[in-house]
Design a binder for these strands. Sequence first.
DNA 1: CACTCGTGGTC
DNA 2: TGACCAAGAGT
Length: 367
Amino acid sequence: MTSKQFSQAQRQRLRRSLLEWYGQQGRSLPWREEPTPYRIWISEVMLQQTQVKTVLPYFERWMQQFPDVQCLAQADLQTVLKAWEGLGYYARARNLHRSAQEICDRHHGKFPQTYDEVLALPGIGRSTAGAILSAAFGQAEPLLDGNVKRVLARLVALPVPPSKALAHLWDLSSQVLDPQNPRDFNQAIMDLGATCCTPKNPACLLCPWRDDCQAYQTHTQSDFPMTESRSPLPHKQIGVAVIWNDHQQILIDRRPEEGLLGGLWEFPGGKLEAGESYPDCIRREIQEELAIEVEVGEHLITVSHAYSHFKVSLHVYHCRHLSGEPQALESQEIRWVTLEELDEFPFPKANSKIIAALREAQGTKSP
DNA sequence: CACTCGTGGTC
DNA sequence: TGACCAAGAGT
């Protein structure tokens, strides 16, 4: 299985035309204007599976709150998660925090500059390592993100989905990379994918690579990259309890550190079993998770939410604490809080919809 | 290597 | 409007 080889002349043409395009069409971004290793690192991790537009406000707030690696290393994890709240893939925030501590402990607070050291940091894989080393230090390391995969798949009319040709795509990314200007080249090829060679309706007439693009030359750009096969997402039904005590406080719990939504807070509850009503489900789950008895009251809201690999509907009910001292049997920590105090804790998006509904109910009760 | 891990934009 | 998908990494 031999990979496609670009001729030296073609590589030079691709590099020259892309860099010229970048000079005219490249985006002005805060981490490009002031490309310190710390800012490049934070931006690259925030940009994993996340669009620039979404990242921008988080990036600015982050730099205000954690202006350098020492500051991040010394922050407490709950504060870091609160700053990340809403961005998703929360392991990224936990890994940034761990990496910051490693950089301070093992690298004297200075971001490492060798490929192996950067790759060894938690949350940095092959592509992010290439992005950081080229952008922060001008090193000629290739990268392979979603944009580059799409651009290259069209350039060579890749006859299989990208996931089936990762080695080939890495080789192509290395071949086209400009060893004279890897910093701008890598930024340029990502910009090309993000703003020109887009998933839908690519602007081929404005593309610097149209003369070399095998997909465009055969008018099949919309057929590439070939789609990945996917199985349908399962849909889970969850009973959720907003448990009130006699002091107008609500019981919340902090999820286990690893796994889905690790370290975030939530309202307790669990999966509906066959033949069970939601009140039955909630009483059972609350007994299993917290070892207390509750009375299930009126239905508050049902929230539907789609995650990467499944969908959920959260059926939320007001509950009243009857007996027993709550225990953190399946969580890290539990706490009684007022409606106002909920803002201090990082919650997943699906839970913030519940909080909004609670606030709305509160507002209508006492005008 | 296939699966887990979030959310918002887009059509 | 539901399905697809984005500056991927860890296991």
